[in-house]
Design a protein around this nucleic acid. Structure first.
Lengths: 205, 205
DNA sequence: GCCATCTTGGAACGTTCGTTCCAAGATAAT
DNA sequence: ATTATCTTGGAACGAACGTTCCAAGATGGC
């Protein structure tokens, strides 16, 4: 009794996400979206509403498809500090190599844009930051339970620090920071919260 | 033999800086600049060139007037970790209260913009990051010299970590992060590199 | 096959964009 | 006072902006 969409909205959202992610929303025109998706303005506006709503949808698509999976892996990895280290290693890998190298993180980028004033967008940023912190916290509690944390370190503070550090990694990677350098930095940060190295074969008899 | 400018370019640059700092360059029109400065387009273009060059000039004005003084203070404070703590305290104060609350840092913001591709802008970002890292490094070397650093900590890695952390503070403050929370976080980060607390009056006889 | 309903292409809307241009105004040296 | 030179206000430019609109096309239930 009616026509059906001639395209896949989710695939479109993925294309749009890349546009906004790389260039930012303010420097991306609706014409760019039309060109990249092959859709007409009619279809875009009928499906997603205006540009701002399209941006929000793309941002949430990013969170769903790019951020959450990585954080989910961290959350379910109960090895403690090795899990945290692996999370950051994967993050840096994504930020510095492959298709999305030097794009930064779409959520971190959104913090700096002139459009973070939109309450809807702001809510996404806060929610995602809380989730990032929570995932790190979970891993750090695991670490503490396994005696991997230094005596003075507590998982709450450490989670806060590492969450801010992740934003720093995201920002600097967009400016072309060296992957090796970033890896060394996060390794040092994690080590700062770790218990002194196990006295394995250090002090002989 | 000629007319002279009827305005102070440096004061104008300060006004323009605030505009770009708060709203970002892409969401700020030349008309906004005209309205805020009271100048005509002729004067603006004759003095600064186009919008992109005006942005770059405003960004360098920011670095000169806002970033460098704070980092200079840190560089010349040889107390070690207390100097680092005071630097971050002052940073957070500026980011969360007063005229510029929730504006973030213009340099950090520039990382995320779609216009960081300009080599000139990119150069400013790299230079400023290096300077931030160097100032922290200087303070941390002082700290180490005074025995304030933990055994495993080295000033180079710690400077890298804290420099990225500063970007994180800048980003999150723009999204409205709580000052008290940020203070606690940076305090924990610094503490992670510090030597164990002096056994002052802890374990009584 | 037909109709009701939704989608699509593409033209068109008024606004704002960054930039250019020129006549009028201001200045300092002569 | 005159002149040469620079600055200024403000109009004007074409291009691009986000959005709206409608006729034509496509679809599924009858």
């Amino acid at each position: 009794m009616a026509d059906v969409k001639h395209f896949d909205p989710d695939a479109t959202l993925d294309t749009v996400m890349r546009l906004f992610w790389r260039q930012g929303v303010a420097t991306t025109g609706v014409q760019d979206v039309v060109d990249a998706t092959g859709l007409s303005r009619s279809s875009l506006y009928a499906t997603f509403g205006g540009k701002q709503e399209l941006y929000r949808a793309a941002l949430e698509h990013y969170v769903r498809e790019r951020s959450r999976p990585l954080l989910g892996r961290l959350e379910e990895d109960d090895r403690g500090l090795p899990a945290v280290g692996e999370f950051f290693a994967a993050l840096i890998e994504r930020r510095c190599t492959g298709e999305f190298a030097r794009w930064g993180c779409m959520v971190s980028n959104a913090h700096a844009g002139g459009e973070n004033g939109s309450p809807a967008v702001r809510a996404v940023l806060d929610r995602q930051h809380r989730y990032l912190r929570a995932a790190l916290h979970t891993a750090l509690v695991s670490a503490q339970r396994q005696g991997q944390l230094a005596e003075g370190a507590d998982p709450d503070s450490a989670a806060d620090v590492l969450a801010l550090l992740a934003h720093g990694v995201n920002l600097r990677s967009r400016a072309g920071a060296d992957a090796r350098e970033l890896r060394a930095t996060v390794t040092a940060a994690i080590a700062a919260f770790a218990a002194p190295a196990a006295p394995a074969a250090r002090s002989g008899p």
